[in-house]
């Protein structure tokens, strides 16, 4: 079984593969990592400060604009970073036919989780 090489002659000669795609993934993982350093520390500090408080305490916290903004930013960076990280784990270890199904499922789940998280945060933040 010989797989047809669909790359251009120039692409084959330079031998770089689809380098731009890989570089984009690498960069996005680093940029989200840098964003997550302050955001996750803020979140952990907030949760520790909220230890033992009930729903009213959490709602009061998320009603402050700064907390709502930080939570939305955290959700975006977190699930982007999570999608990129889990993608590499699957690419490294899963070689069966399930590979693409799992990759697509992870991407969709991360989008769904980020969307849900942002929506409920806004509902708490601006809701009655």
């Amino acid at each position: 079984m010989h797989k047809q090489d669909r790359r251009s002659l120039l692409s084959r000669a330079t031998g770089l593969g689809s380098a731009r795609k890989g570089v984009g993934h690498w960069w996005a993982e680093r940029v989200t990592a840098i964003a997550l350093v302050p955001l996750t520390i803020w979140f952990l500090a907030s949760v520790v400060a909220l230890t033992g408080s009930d729903r009213a305490g959490v709602v009061t916290w998320l009603r402050t604009p700064s907390a709502a903004i930080c939570m939305v930013l955290l959700l975006v960076a977190l699930f982007y970073h999570m999608a990129l990280g889990l993608q590499v784990v699957i690419e490294d270890y899963v070689h069966s036919g399930a590979r693409f199904a799992v990759l697509i499922a992870i991407r969709l789940a991360c989008f769904a989780l980020a969307g849900t998280g942002i929506l409920v945060t806004l509902r708490i933040s601006v809701g009655g």
Binding site: V58, V89, V120, T121
Partner: peptide, 23 residues
Amino acid sequence: TGIVLSAFAVFLVIWLSVAAASP
């Protein structure tokens, strides 16, 4: 730890959802 934290990220959304739902 990245995989473990992914599970906790799912829990974060559950935690926010129940906070939005009811006491």
